[in-house]
């Protein structure tokens, strides 16, 4: 099977700094893949290049074999890439359902229509999506009053609106309570399984990463330094040194004592 996402030799410079340096990887269909690394390692830069917010200095990004390098975010979305952000970007002035309807309106290319009433359009589909993320009972609440964890789930529903082949999730559980984190990642795993979507996500919570990803990549100073299963990454000496750090050093010293 061909990869959903294929990245080859991706490079991005900021001034003289190489934020991302020769990064290559593939995401297979139905795969839940994590990208981890210390702050400033280049994770967000990488994500922004995949989604079109940033143009790469060099390298290519392929979606289902099609070259999408340098295309604007809205085109990449239309090709089937959903995205959630570290800081949620929902529409505060709309209800929960309308937020999802907005994405559906866009998907159906009705953005410039001035005739129908928007709040009646695609409402059933929107409610179905909200059902998927367990938000249907809050469909008519104002988005501005939602709890943080609910906003994250809403964002996920929006990202699913155009039946994407690939979901990019930037620190999906940041700022959430431990219980909410587990729920959200469980939900994400279910979606991957039920819909055959691939997910690429960045995350700082190692519990989340090790429990939910099929494959883990570690980025440091803009370069991929390791990848593999949870066990493999955990055992990697360089990963321990630059990222997981602390505990292992500590353990090593304990052993000496």
């Amino acid at each position: 099977m061909t990869a959903v996402l294929k990245v080859t030799d991706l490079v991005r410079h900021f001034g003289g700094i190489k934020a991302v340096n020769n990064v290559s990887f593939e995401v297979a269909p139905g795969e839940l893949r994590a990208l981890i690394g210390p702050n400033g390692a280049g994770k967000s830069t990488c994500f922004n290049m995949l989604m079109g917010q940033l143009k790469p200095t060099a390298g290519k990004v392929f979606l289902n074999g099609e070259d999408i390098t340098g295309r604007p975010p809205r085109e990449i979305w239309r090709l089937g890439v959903g995205r959630t952000f570290q800081i949620t970007g929902t529409y505060q002035s709309m209800t929960v359902a309308e937020n999802v309807q907005m994405a559906l309106i866009s998907h159906n290319r009705k953005l410039f229509s001035v005739l129908p009433r928007a709040h009646r359009l695609y409402r059933e589909e929107a409610l179905d999506l909200l059902e998927t993320v367990g938000m249907v009972d809050q469909a008519d609440r104002a988005c501005a009053i939602l709890a943080y964890g609910d906003l994250k789930r809403l964002e996920l529903a929006i990202a699913l609106a155009n039946s994407p082949r690939l979901l990019l999730m930037d620190e999906p559980t940041a700022g959430m309570a431990p219980r909410e984190r587990i729920n959200l990642m469980q939900l994400t795993s279910d979606i991957v399984r039920d819909r055959g979507v691939s997910v690429l996500f960045t995350e700082h919570d190692m519990d989340v990463v090790f429990a939910h990803s099929h494959h883990i990549m570690v980025l440091n100073r803009g370069e991929l330094i390791a990848e593999g299963s949870a066990a493999e990454v955990r055992a990697d000496a360089r990963v321990q040194e630059v990222y997981l750090g602390g505990g292992t050093l500590f353990a090593a010293e304990d052993a000496h004592a």
Binding site: M206, R234, L244, G245, G246, G247, T248, F250, D254
Partner: peptide
């Protein structure tokens, strides 16, 4: 803290 590795494991690293 060294006497309580469980704390370290729970809150600091993997």
């Amino acid at each position: 803290l060294e006497k309580h590795p469980e704390i370290r494991d729970a809150y600091l690293s993997v």
